[in-house]
Design a protein around this nucleic acid. Sequence first.
DNA 1: GAACCACAAACCTAAACGGT
DNA 2: ACCGTTTAGGTTTGTGGTTC
Length: 540
Amino acid sequence: PVSLADLASLEFSSLLPPHGVYRARILSVRPWSPHTRLGQIGLGGATSGEAGDAVVVELKGLWADKAMRRFRKGDVAILLTKGADVIEAKGKKRAGAAEKEQAVRLRYSRGLTGWIRRMDGSEEVLRYEVATSNPAPTVRAKRLHPPEAMDVDSPLPLSTSKSSPALVAHPTKVSPPNEGSRSKKRRRREEQLGWGFETADKMTYTTLDKLGDIVEKTDRTKLQTLRVNIVGVIVDAGEVKAPRVAGRDWYRSFLITDPTRLDSSIEVQWYAKGEGGLPEPHVGEVFVARQLAVHDIAPATKTSTRCWRIRLGEEELKYAARVARFFAARAKASTPSAAEGAPMVPPGAAILPPSLAASVTEHLKKRTSAAGSSREFLRIEQIEEGKFCDLLGMVTKLHSDTALTSLSPHQAASLYITDYTPHPLLHDYPSPSSVGLPSRLTLQVSLFGSQAAPLAALINPRTGEATRGALVFLRNVRIKANESGELEGTMVEERKFAGRTDVEVVDLRRKAHEERWGERARQVQRRHREYWAARSLARH
DNA sequence: GAACCACAAACCTAAACGGT
DNA sequence: ACCGTTTAGGTTTGTGGTTC
């Protein structure tokens, strides 16, 4: 037996006892990655878990994939030292500071033998070896690069001596990203393909640059029945608009482009009977529409009379992916140079040429000025349906089916907050309430996608519950009524403003937070105290 | 043309760091 | 102890070259 502490104190390149065995608890597992062909398990003391005896065991090679799947956190691993190498701790130690020892790393590149003792007491044997160049037939046509070179992490001198002569003989030049032969080839292929396409069942998807022609060539009389199929990328998501006259449709207009129409966008208007019928488009997403009515082409406006969700066929998906790829590559190519040139461009413009970016900026300006940036910082008693507002409140409950940090844009966490001001249109919870407070004091806010992520900090890992009473600030909450007419809040992920946090856990000890919310927060806390004081009085 | 390999840079993330 | 920032480190994406 070799003690873990002995292992942990080994120096780089020192030799391991060839027939040693060591035992330790698995503290962490990093899964095997096909690219690096490496998996890691962190080991600590089997019994006491004393400090200073941390060892990281790495399994490298194709064989390690299977092996890594068997390690679980908490199990005890009993491993032979046979086949292990002590490798250099990576990274430079910080000068001066950090006498802290880095964990010794043991690497198994040629296989591993040992046991696992599961937490339930069961034991399993571990025996892995480098797959030795398989049955002969596959190896018959032997490559110049021997197969074992990819399985084994060859020691340094060997690899250099092997590769450097080749390198010296053929100094290869490397093109910048997206300018290499592969990229060029891909572009050529795409150019040849052109944009727009026709499905197997003769459905033609029109490119956006042709819309003008199509409209011109169509009789005025037939214009009303003209329908087109299009694929475009959303460059401005627009926003939900309530009907101007009661009884008419809700609508949302957003802007799209495609590779054939890079210097101006097309506006899509989406109408629905209710607010819920409207889509939630995000900048950068691909928009596919069949049978869209073309309304007017002067500033290129299109209107669809009926909307329904469609299931895309393989060809449509493929084409949509191509369009998305086109814009993604474009965005990548343009951002480095644009970084210094344009400071205040709207985020959506990142994927656009400057000419179009300007038009989007204008559109945004028009919209915001028309809508009026009238968002207010409200108390819950002041909220109104259909309005956007900022809120500061205390958490009474937080619920999510999925981890808060990994919600998809269509999943929501339910946050219940109160600022101890009542609103007549809030749900009237019963006296011992599931959400923390009875009566009409708590507002439920649905946080979609990444909006919920900041709240992960409130979750107690032990209980899985959020700390109650924590102060949170919610920026730009949309207040709407549910089926029964009660008010709720929603916050959707705005990819346009990715990186901005609309949800913030307030910590008054922090200067910035104190300055920004201190006053409001103390009002909430005062009402909180008064509420509970009154209740305890009533009880006695 | 596809499937490899080796290598490099960009990208992402979890742990370490360091101030309060 | 807490919390934002930094950083080490892997992961992803892309390159040229080779072989089938």
